[in-house]
Nucleic acid binder design. Structure first.
Length: 660
RNA sequence: GCCCGAGUAGCUCAGUCGGCAGAGCGACGCACUCGUAAUGCGUAGGUCACGAGUUCGAUUCUCGUCUCGGGCUCCA
């Protein structure tokens, strides 16, 4: 056998992957779950062909975990069939961090939460029995006979799905114990005794083959790991995500809520959340102004005729709020801003000298999202997009896309999101426009990505039917990936609206149109920031930056004068009262995640200093000079790269100066 | 929209095998005047999500509705 490091290992003919692992070391033998032979992953128990190159897959690797999880899913299906004789099982793959299996219980029965514990207990019995996983291969006919009472398995065999173990006329199955057999490509761990560090996590419904019209199955989710420690650390990660949940933080920090009186998916922002949002929006406006965007404002309602022209009524109607009749016309709440921006473009004849024209609006739109998809601020029914539409000539497209992407990335980084990745979605099977147009626009996007220096993947055929696009994803502090910005070229709307401009040749041309949302939706971006920072927003975004706490009542006047100095310098500061023990007031300020907690007592009144207890700092300092703390705060909120303070509003230079 | 689960004070949650509803935190008041993550005492606060049914009696049991959570589907 040839090993990954190039070394050769001699084994007797007929040796298996398990023998190979054992020959390489007892530790490896214990960790091994499968073996890769000439690029094909297979069971440890299968004989190795002479002269092949082989490497051992261990439990703690992504590939090894997938095998553990998949095997655990089999055990779960076995447990369910023991507990519910006659249960039908559909598919049970490994997924990120775990696995699931879909079932249909006899008599239309459903699982409930308490069943998870029963299933788990039964699984532990099966694991204790240490049943070997035995691979068998059959012809398609035999396979169908084997699964005579398993319609979903039969459908997979009939559909010849190689990823599920039914391809090339051969059906592979795995048997463990005397009664349970499952259609499966494999590989599996040698026996159920290798499993055990798992937990069943949740129940859900799932449509067979993901199709709403097909039967609805019961899905059981679980997680499985190579060790108890790894399982525990995963569960701790879940707890951490829970701690960062923006819905919880929104309540605790008094930022926003969803009044049932208003309706599902329709948030209200409280003063503190409103301040954060205002800071985000102010920053966005300032940067857009610097980057040559023009601000526009459009209404929330429109006659149906506009949406007919744009095609929204044809393509997007099911995501729209229902119409209202008024004075003989039909009005809709707008689901998108683009048609209105196009009308602004079309309000008069345009010259090539006006291009590129970049229109920007924080535009509030309404979308009828199905009730089950609503999710805090991440998915709402009324949202504000930081939306822009760029109209340009064909020869401007490359430069425009490149600078646009740079702009997007710079703004995202300013919010502390610096792990950025992109996805380029290319032409789908159904598309409008010409292949030549598509290729050209896709190449422009690709060039913009290459110039930006961020990593990207290509999603072949995933573009919208009207255009290719770039989606920008960020990774947050605990490694979760969120889609934020999107940049889409649009071949359809300019045509539908008959947009044109007069070129240098005195002829009429159709402009290119680029849609772009940077935050995506302000609400969603707000939620992502909250989760990323676990509520401790960067100082320039903190609703309150400074609280000055007097030690005793007789320090209140001094505390107010200190807070006043910060306010005069353009910071958000307030003085507290001396109504509780200092420790309690400090604690309260910390829980509110105020970045600068200043304490003033006798010494400070005498010396004109403060005690500084700053967020993220180990221990409080005593006797700091006020100017010095002010300077530190100013430096902290200043934008890297010397673009001036992003934080202070009143005294800050705002943003009129400086071209992009 | 579908499946599973939840809804009790502002928040987090107990509780009632069907018989006048509880804690902690928070709010408010009083006292304390304090040097860096919880001072003490007191007061107020509830249509037990909403509607119907069963019952002498329903917060508790049943049905329906609404809202929320986890998934599925969807995501121009």
């Amino acid at each position: 056998m040839r090993l990954p490091d190039g070394a050769l290992k001699h084994l007797p003919t007929g040796s298996t992957g398990a023998d190979l692992a054992a020959a390489l070391g007892p530790g490896l033998a214990q960790e091994a779950v499968a073996v890769v032979v000439d690029g094909q992953v297979q069971d440890l128990g299968a004989p190795l062909p002479t002269g092949a190159s082989a490497s051992v897959v261990t439990a703690g690797t992504p590939e090894g975990r997938a095998i553990l999880r998949h095997s655990t899913a089999h055990v779960m299906a076995q447990a369910v069939t023991r507990l519910w004789p006659g249960a039908k099982y559909a598919i049970g793959p490994a997924i990120e961090d775990g696995f699931y299996y879909d079932f249909e219980l006899p008599g239309g029965d459903h699982f409930n939460e308490a069943d998870l514990a029963r299933i788990e207990a039964k699984m532990r019995e099966i694991i204790a029995e240490d049943q070997p996983f035995v691979r068998e291969e059959h012809g398609a006919h035999e396979g169908l006979a084997l699964f005579a009472d398993q319609p979903y398995k039969r459908e997979i065999i009939e559909g010849v799905d190689a990823s599920e173990g039914a391809g090339g006329g051969v059906v592979s199955v795995y048997r463990n114990g005397d009664s349970f057999v499952d259609l499966c490509r494999g590989p599996h761990v040698p026996s159920t005794g290798r499993l055990g560090h798992f937990r069943l996590t949740k129940l859900a419904a799932a449509y067979w083959r993901g199709d709403e019209r097909r039967p609805q199955l019961q899905r059981v989710y679980g997680t499985a790991w190579e060790s108890e420690a790894a399982l525990r650390s995963y569960l701790a990660r879940l707890a951490e995500a829970e701690r960062r949940d923006h819905r919880r933080l929104g309540l605790e920090l008094d930022l926003f809520h969803f009044p049932p009186e208003i309706g599902s998916g329709l948030p209200v922002f409280h003063p503190k959340g409103g301040m954060v949002r205002k800071l985000m929006e102010d920053y966005s406006r300032r940067e857009h102004e610097r980057a040559g965007y023009q601000f526009v404002f459009t209404p929330h309602l429109t006659k149906s005729t506009l949406l007919e022209t744009s095609g929204h009524l044809e393509w997007y109607a099911e995501n729209m709020y229902p119409p209202m009749e008024m004075e003989g016309a039909t009005y809709y709440p707008k689901p998108m801003n683009c048609p209105m921006h196009i009308l602004i473009y079309k309000s008069r004849q345009r010259s090539y000298r006006e291009l590129p024209m970049r229109l920007f609006e924080l535009g509030t739109v309404y979308r009828f999202e199905r009730s089950g998809v609503l999710n805090g601020l991440l998915r709402v029914r009324g949202l504000t997009q930081d939306d822009s539409h760029i109209f340009c000539a064909r020869d401007q497209l490359d430069d425009e896309l490149a600078s646009l992407l740079q702009f997007v990335l710079r703004v995202l980084r300013r919010f502390g999101l610096d792990e950025l990745e992109a996805e380029l979605s290319t032409r789908p099977d159904k598309f409008i426009g010409s292949v030549e147009e598509w290729d050209r626009a896709t190449e422009s996007l690709r060039a913009a990505l290459a110039a930006s220096g961020i990593g990207y993947t290509v999603a072949e055929g995933e573009g919208a039917f009207y255009a290719p696009k770039i989606d920008v994803h960020v990774r947050d502090a605990i490694g979760r990936r969120w889609q934020v910005s999107t940049i889409q070229v649009d071949f359809q709307e300019p045509q539908r609206f008959g947009m044109e401009y007069v070129g240098p040749d005195n002829a009429r041309h159709q402009p290119y149109m680029v849609h772009r949302a940077l935050f995506g939706s302000v609400e969603r971006f707000f939620a992502i920031l909250l989760e990323h920072y676990a509520g401790a927003l960067p100082t320039w975004l903190a609703p309150l930056q400074v609280r000055v706490l007097p030690v005793r009542d007789d320090h209140v006047a001094y505390a107010r004068s200190v807070a006043g100095r910060f306010e005069a310098a353009g910071f958000r500061a307030e003085a507290g009262a001396a109504d509780e023990p200092l420790g309690a007031r400090v604690r309260r300020a910390k829980l509110e995640k105020i970045p600068y907690v200043l304490v003033v007592g006798d010494d400070d009144v005498a010396a004109g200093t403060v005690g500084a207890n700053l967020r993220g700092q180990e221990r409080p300092e005593r006797g700091a000079r006020v100017e010095e703390v002010l300077a530190r705060l100013a430096a902290e909120v200043a934008e890297p790269g010397g673009r001036g303070p992003g934080g202070p509003g009143g005294a800050g230079p705002g943003g009129a100066e400086g071209a992009p």
